[in-house]
Simulated scan of single mutants.
Amino acid sequence: MRLPRRRPHPPPVSASSDDHELMAAVAAERVEALRLLHDRHAPWLRARLLRRCADPDIVDDAIQDTFVAVWRGAGHYSPQGEDAAAWLWTIAVRRLASALRRPGGRWIASATLADADARLASAEDGVLLGVEHGDLGGALARLSPELRAVIQATVLDGLTIREASRLLGIPEGTVKTRLMRARARLREELA
């Protein structure tokens, strides 16, 4: 009779474990690692998603869906390919967009260009633009607030023209025009 192979036990995880260690432990189906990852990242994910959605219940659902997806897909995470926080943000913003596409989902209806500019001017967004996008970060920072808001909504957050229109409180045609102008300016800046 042949005995089944024993899996090597991954090292223990703690609050001092880095994100890559936690992701490896989640891939090994260690619930405590998922809990630590949630405790570390859910607060900032919630804060950023609340800037995009007026309904905190939808945001909370998106965060829950995000960590369910992390539990199911942690084996697909590659520490060489991307930062864990960026991977989580990508999942979270897609889960929020999916939730908002369902009946009853609400974009920030009263968002104005000043609100969008204030979001883009936050320290966190500035760091993300500079670090995650290198030369592109500088080019994005030189765009007008109106053009940056459209680029962030459509390109960085992956929203459709209609969703960006609802988010920013401007007509779809205006989103398309600003997106075309922003892309042209970025081509000039990066050429």
Rank of each mutant, 00 (worst) to 15 (best):
Thr154Leu: 01
Pro171Trp: 05
Glu32Phe: 01
Pro10Phe: 06
Val13Ala: 04
Ile151Trp: 15
Val68Ala: 11
Ala184Asp: 13
Pro11Phe: 01
Ala74Gly: 11
Gly130Asn: 09
Glu82Gly: 03
Ala184Lys: 11
Val155Cys: 07
Ala191Arg: 14
Ala118Asn: 10
Asp60Thr: 10
Leu88Ser: 02
Trp71Ile: 13
Asp55Trp: 03
Ile151Gly: 03
Gly81Thr: 10
Pro8His: 12
Thr154Asn: 08
Lys176Thr: 15
Arg5His: 09
Ala164His: 04
Arg185Cys: 05
His38Thr: 13
Leu140Glu: 00
Ala84Gly: 07
Ile170Glu: 00
Leu96Gly: 07
Met23Lys: 05
Asp117Val: 02
Ala47Ser: 14
Ala84His: 00
Met23Leu: 15
Leu22Glu: 04
Arg95Cys: 02
Asp135Val: 10
Thr90His: 14
Ser98Ala: 15
Arg181Tyr: 10
Leu22Gly: 00
Pro56Val: 03
Glu124His: 12
Asp60Ser: 12
Gly104Asp: 06
Leu120Asn: 09
Val70Met: 11
Leu88Asp: 01
Ala84Cys: 09
Asp39Gln: 13
Pro11Met: 03
Val175His: 04
Ala121Gln: 07
Pro8Ile: 10
Arg48Thr: 08
Ala111Gly: 06
Arg40Asp: 12
Ser144Arg: 12
Asp19Pro: 01
Ser17Phe: 04
Leu190Asp: 11
Arg30Cys: 07
Pro145Thr: 00
Leu100Ile: 04
Leu136Arg: 10
Arg6His: 12
Leu129Cys: 13
Phe67His: 10
Ala25Phe: 06
Asp135Met: 05
Ser78Ala: 10
Trp89Tyr: 09
Ala141Asn: 04
Ala118Tyr: 01
Ala118Val: 05
Ser144Leu: 08
Gly134Ala: 14
Ala109Asn: 03
Pro8Thr: 12
Ala62Gln: 04
Asp65Gln: 12
Ala118Ser: 08
Glu163Leu: 02
Gly134Thr: 01
Ala149Lys: 02
Arg51Met: 08
Asp39Lys: 11
Phe67Cys: 11
Ala97Pro: 02
Glu163Ala: 15
Ile170Ser: 06
Pro171Asn: 01
Ala182Asp: 03
Met180Phe: 13
Val31Thr: 13
Gly169Glu: 00
Gln64Ala: 11
Ala84Phe: 03
Trp89Asp: 13
Ala123Trp: 09
Ala116Asn: 00
Ala85Thr: 09
Asp61Thr: 13
Trp44Asn: 09
Leu100Trp: 00
Asp65Phe: 00
Ala69Gln: 12
Arg162Cys: 02
Ser16Ala: 15
Leu186Pro: 03
Gly158Ala: 07
Pro103Met: 03
Phe67Leu: 13
Thr174Gly: 02
Arg102Leu: 08
Gly126Phe: 04
Gly81Ala: 15
Trp44Asp: 12
Gly137Asn: 01
Thr177Leu: 14
Val93Thr: 15
Ser98Asp: 15
Ala24Tyr: 00
Arg101Pro: 06
Gly137His: 02
Ala111Asn: 10
Glu172Ala: 14
Pro56Thr: 03
Leu3Lys: 14
Asp157Val: 05
Leu186Asn: 08
Ala111Trp: 06
Val68Gln: 07
Thr174Arg: 12
Ala84Leu: 05
Ala114Gly: 11
Gly134His: 09
Gly134Asp: 15
Glu189Gly: 02
Thr160Arg: 08
Leu168Glu: 05
Leu22Thr: 04
Arg178Met: 06
Ile151Val: 15
Trp87Lys: 07
Arg40Asn: 13
Thr174Cys: 03
Ala27Phe: 05
Ala69Ile: 06
Ala114Phe: 04
Glu82Lys: 07
Pro12Ile: 05
Leu167Lys: 04
Gly73Arg: 15
Arg35Thr: 09
Leu136Glu: 09
